[in-house]
């Protein structure tokens, strides 16, 4: 009798972790999103839809669209760069493979703040890339490259590149290379093997990486504030601003719930499309 309880007790542990660290804060956030703001404190217990209604103003709509755009673009670019890079790395000599994997792991150890500061320096007019380009005569009137949308996007890529590349590594390294050789023997020119065979085989992995990076970039805070202009800031920055800066916790909570729903919708859509594709092939 006691032994039969053991699997259930073991199963309770992750359930308890989920409740304590995810479901309870989420439930609390949902409850707070219906409260009213108290100018003297954080919130007043109530049940109002005002916080959700505010989202439908043009300001929050624009911020939402901008967040979705920067996160989607960042996710796409980082996967488009990391996938072919890892395709090349796994075919290198073992020593070079090890070098790249260690380098990528080291990059992952860097905090968002350090990466942001490094790019700030490199983008600065006085000491970074613009100065160098001016010095070699490629840029007549060099000026700082940040803050800008491009600088923020580069920050996103630096953050996500090693993570995505290492996500692809095991699958890419263990792939059956004879599939590519079969394509060659059947008449596929070497340059087209990647597009005809490798890419289609990795579509599920690519889709899930794009989805992961999308969710990750939707929640980044440091890069937009350090490298982006105010008009580039995403919803995470605005939520922080409202919740902490304006002490409007209910509005921050409502915006968070809406962003969570957006994310779930997009991930659900991607999963559905992926399942349909698998079923049709």
């Amino acid at each position: 009798m006691k032994r039969s309880l053991v699997p259930y007790l073991i199963g309770l542990f992750p359930l308890a972790m989920m409740v304590v660290f995810f479901l309870a804060p989420l439930a609390f956030m949902i409850v707070v999103s219906f409260y009213e703001r108290d100018p003297l404190g954080f919130y007043k217990v109530s049940f109002v839809w005002d916080n959700y209604a505010k989202f439908f103003s043009s300001f929050y709509y624009t911020i939402s669209m901008r967040s979705l755009w920067s996160a989607s673009l960042g996710a796409l670019v980082v996967v488009l760069l990391a996938f072919p890079a890892m395709y090349i790395i796994v075919d290198m000599h073992r020593r070079w493979q090890l070098f790249w994997v260690i380098l990528l792991l080291s990059l992952m150890c860097l905090s968002e703040v350090i990466i942001g500061f490094a790019w700030l320096i490199l983008f600065s007019e006085s000491s970074g890339i613009p100065k160098f380009l001016g010095w070699v005569g490629l840029w007549e009137n060099p000026r700082s490259l940040s803050p800008s949308f491009g600088a923020m996007l580069i920050g996103f890529i630096t953050l996500g590149f090693s993570l995505v590349a290492l996500m692809f590594y095991p699958q890419m390294a263990q792939r059956d290379r004879s599939i590519e050789e079969a394509a060659l023997t059947l008449g596929t020119p070497p340059a087209r093997v990647f597009y005809k065979v490798v890419l289609p085989n990795f579509t599920p992995a690519i889709v899930s990486s794009v989805a992961t990076m999308f969710v990750y970039f939707l929640g980044v805070f440091v890069m937009p504030t350090m490298l982006g202009r105010p008009q580039d800031w995403n919803m995470t920055v605005i939520i922080t601003d409202k919740a902490v800066g304006d002490a409007n916790m209910p509005l921050g909570a409502a915006l968070s719930v809406i962003m969570l729903l957006f994310t779930l919708l997009i991930i659900g859509g991607l999963m559905l499309a992926s399942r349909k594709r698998e079923a049709s092939s």
């Binding site: 004879s178 599939i179 050789e181 079969a182 023997t185 065979v197 289609p200 085989n201 092939s281």
Partner: peptide, 12 residues
């Protein structure tokens, strides 16, 4: 025309 040991059929 080559038949590979792993067969190497295109899974997609």
């Amino acid at each position: 025309g080559m038949v590979f040991q792993s067969l190497a059929l295109f899974p997609h």
